[in-house]
Design a protein around this nucleic acid. Sequence first.
DNA 1: AATAAAAGTGTAACCGGTTCCATTATGTTT
DNA 2: AAACATAATGGAACCGGTTACACTTTTATT
Lengths: 342, 342
Amino acid sequence: MQKQPTIRDVAAAAGVSVAVVSRVLNPGSGPVAAATRSRVSEVMETLGYHPRTAARELKHGPPTTLGLLLADVSNPFFARLADQVVQEAHSRGIQVLLMTTQEDDQLESERLSTLIERRVSGIIATPTGNNLEIWKKLQDMGTDVVFVDRSIPALPAVDVVTINNVESARSATALLAAHGHRRIAIISGPSSSTTGRDRIAGYREALDAAGLDQDDLLIRSAAFRGAAGGDAMTTLLNLEDPPTALVVANTAQVTAVLRRLSHAGVSIPDELSVIVFEDSPWTELMTPPLTIVRQPIDLLARHSVRLALAHPNGKAAGKPTVVRVDAELVERSSVARPRLRV
Amino acid sequence: MQKQPTIRDVAAAAGVSVAVVSRVLNPGSGPVAAATRSRVSEVMETLGYHPRTAARELKHGPPTTLGLLLADVSNPFFARLADQVVQEAHSRGIQVLLMTTQEDDQLESERLSTLIERRVSGIIATPTGNNLEIWKKLQDMGTDVVFVDRSIPALPAVDVVTINNVESARSATALLAAHGHRRIAIISGPSSSTTGRDRIAGYREALDAAGLDQDDLLIRSAAFRGAAGGDAMTTLLNLEDPPTALVVANTAQVTAVLRRLSHAGVSIPDELSVIVFEDSPWTELMTPPLTIVRQPIDLLARHSVRLALAHPNGKAAGKPTVVRVDAELVERSSVARPRLRV
DNA sequence: AATAAAAGTGTAACCGGTTCCATTATGTTT
DNA sequence: AAACATAATGGAACCGGTTACACTTTTATT
């Protein structure tokens, strides 16, 4: 366990002042003779010197850290988002502090406090929907806040990056209608989430366009966490006039729903046509391969990082940016014409 | 965009010295009159004061950050590991800097430099196997290094947390042998990885114990990234005397292998019994449900975090800790007796 | 060759906390 | 009430970088 050399150690060893070492460390911050530069570099090398980020950041250092606050990372959608965000950030020399809320207000608030104390330059988050004052304060401080996947209508000043939820649910539902289904159900995220609301709106649009009746019994919301999706599925199956087609629009609950269907012995697509919002490689390996709505996670990540670093010097201003990217409906074999009713 | 108040602003507003404010900030660091404490707290509240972590860490601050350096986070195994590590760290008030190597030496080296500059107190990593000097230097500096999932034999001084790879591959192989299989193949990670080697060793043990011949043609290594698993599978299928059973021990390649099997029209378990190292909820939804080796990710995370924070004051010493937790063989329906050969 | 401009270097203040130590206020003991 | 321990507070140095500014050398200009 050795004590780490400081900039003064380097300066002394190289026979120059700390200012010169600092200039070598930050090319462009001032002139340094070529000979001096190489001598200092050499000393840094032999001493194994590494400048401390903490010290650098104290003096209006350039932003080098970004907060990524997700609901949780065990959900593959968020995991892949995290992966892409990290890659995108690294390619710009930015580090990522990963945090999770577990969809819990209180935890979210604690995480945000930590991010404030760290003075991160930007935050990419899937907000729980509360803690409004904290989000405002963050922006006030000049932090670039970007909501991804969801948003908070009460905070219209925040940048948002999502897929086009209305359109993607609409087209999924329309595909089912086009196959002749008249009883189409949807299991979506909680209606307190913009994602949930938008997808249900798209679903309704499609029903209208197809001239189908709306039946609120066919619209089920399921919490993001826990086994809510399975329960919603059971409720649908027990309906007097059960659906012949289903859109599972809550990414977090896709496997829970499928598990319940499997246990109930419902065959896809004979008894129930299914479209899921999910892009795991497993969806293609299922029997039958599932028709899915694929979210372009790389685009979501790229735009999020771009916006989170848009105002490097805290010069936030103007109207917020809203990015909506298109999701892709990938048709496989879990959608068929409904069987004739007895 | 408002300027953030500093500790001196708080001190001035409360009519006390900065030392007192600091004591309020760090309970236990010195006495403060109850009245003063509440007055200062109140001022901090109204001013919206948040101490800067960067400034705190400059002066031998307690370690508050941990580096998590994974191969990539799109792999669900690593994603869930990240999720658990983050939760475990948060419960101890520690933040996590997430990085990925993409299995690339060079990237790993860059990430490690960043972690050195940040003076993180601990690092949890899936090492690529190179950069030996950097790992040593890290330990030398007093950083707690923990390898998870894999290790580097050339670095015996580093703490390691993995599942018992030998035993888990042995028991999976033994199960297949017990079903009467004599041609059992394994697709594992590259033999440059300890994980790959250990699993193959366990596989060999099981064959020996069952009195079966070893055939190196049945042992395929597949790189962690890319479509290597699919190619390995094709090679196995084209063998003159192809296997009747298979262990897919490379987590990263499970879906690639299954996709190839699916395209080749090989039916499981009739033509091929399969056991995979993978614990996605999807494995249970497959037709047939897959027999799996389940890694106790929560335990891996818990032990990793514990070890990564074991020496908070850099007082590393003594012999390294090696934790091997047992994986669980979950029998479902992808293993059956082999069909009789024609 | 004289002078101006540019290049190279050093000094010291500063960033925003923590902490050692000195000083003053309060409380206890006999 | 004197003597002394303890609580509460403040002043100032310090952590390890960055940077404004002053100073000294080199190079360019005419």
